[in-house]
């Protein structure tokens, strides 16, 4: 479906120092910094997959999206989506993709949503019957019927995002690019948007490329996750694998009756947090089992509560970022 091979991209950015003298010299001579946004990135995406694309700000995520959607031409490497080279066959190609930029609206601000949809179906050269049918389906799926006749500026962010999603699906695209679709949404709206993305993927088999900073989005949706840092691909695999490889560290939280507590004696265990009556320990389960640790603890303390948890995807990410120093 999507093949990205060895893609690189460098930007040139005007360098603006501060201060009076620098401002005056930059009138005559301007220096530039070169930033390698993508450094030989390769991957491929299968039909029907939901790919979670993560990485800190400035890692090159949106550059990749821009290349895959035909907005940018890479300096080197090759990208093919459904056989098209995005930037070469732009007009033919984009007929098959839908794009949502979470931070920017594609709807016309001052008119009712339905007017935007009508204009979009003209832009995508759809017959009126086809567009009406899709719109009906989407209205039902996204529960839009009450929103269609409201001007966009009066919608809440959550309502607007549902309308945005519908707008990018009107022309039945085969690939859907979602750039931070849940940014700024409240918890309920986030759940609805996620549910919808899942449904649309299952029902139409659309391939979804999702970038987000919300790891819950990734956990709820993505079949596969790609981590990008400093323009390089650092991880590419399933969430399950990622979790498994980090499952070796478990966290034990214990509560105990007040008393002199010392945990230093337990091997392969570090204290994450400790206060009177409560402690949190990280256990390296390749060296010592969780039950051994609990046994040792109950030997020296009067435990009132024990709670064992695997690391969250969020904390795994933090760990990954730290490991790669990004």
């Amino acid at each position: 479906m999507i093949i990205v091979e060895d893609v690189s991209k460098t930007y040139r950015i005007a360098h603006r120092p501060s201060g009076w003298r620098a401002a005056l010299t930059s009138l005559i001579h301007r220096s530039y910094a070169h930033i390698q946004a993508l450094d030989h990135v390769s991957f491929s995406v299968n039909r029907g997959e939901i790919l979670g694309y993560v990485g800190p700000n400035g890692a090159g995520k949106s550059t990749t999206i821009k290349i895959m959607t035909g907005i940018l031409v890479p300096d080197g490497g090759c990208c093919r989506v459904m056989g098209y080279i995005p930037w070469k066959h732009r007009v033919d190609y984009v007929q098959h993709i839908g794009v949502v930029f979470g931070q920017r609206s594609q709807l016309w601000w001052d008119v009712p949503v339905i007017d935007s949809y009508e204009l979009l179906s003209d832009i995508y050269r759809m017959s009126s019957t086809a567009s009406r049918r899709t719109l009906e389906q989407l209205t039902q799926m996204l529960d839009l019927s009450s929103l269609l006749h409201i001007p966009v500026r009066q919608l809440s962010l959550g309502q607007r995002m549902r309308c945005e999603l519908a707008a990018s699906l009107l022309h039945n695209p085969s690939v859907l690019f979602l750039d931070e679709p849940t940014i700024g949404l409240d918890a309920v709206s986030k759940l609805r948007v996620r549910q919808f993305i899942k449904t649309i993927n299952e029902e139409t088999g659309v391939t979804v490329i999702l970038t987000t900073h919300d790891m819950n989005d990734i956990e709820a949706l993505a079949h596969r996750i790609m981590l990008l840092g400093r323009g390089q691909l650092l991880y590419d695999g399933s969430i399950a694998d990622l979790k498994r490889s980090y499952k070796t560290i478990q966290t034990i939280t214990v509560q105990f009756e007040n008393g002199p507590a010392s945990f230093e004696t337990i091997p392969h265990t570090t204290i994450a947090q400790s206060s009177s009556g409560r402690a949190q320990l990280s256990v390296d389960t390749t060296r010592i089992s969780v039950s051994d640790v609990i046994n040792q603890l109950s030997g020296s303390l009067k435990l009132t509560d024990v709670y064992v948890e695997s690391p969250s995807i969020e904390s795994i990410m933090v760990q990954l970022y730290e490991e790669h120093d990004i």
Partner: peptide, 18 residues
Amino acid sequence: RNGEFDRLLVRPQSTVVQ
């Protein structure tokens, strides 16, 4: 400046009309 031109590039129409 506000990045809206990106949006026009992902639509299947000539940039001039859009």
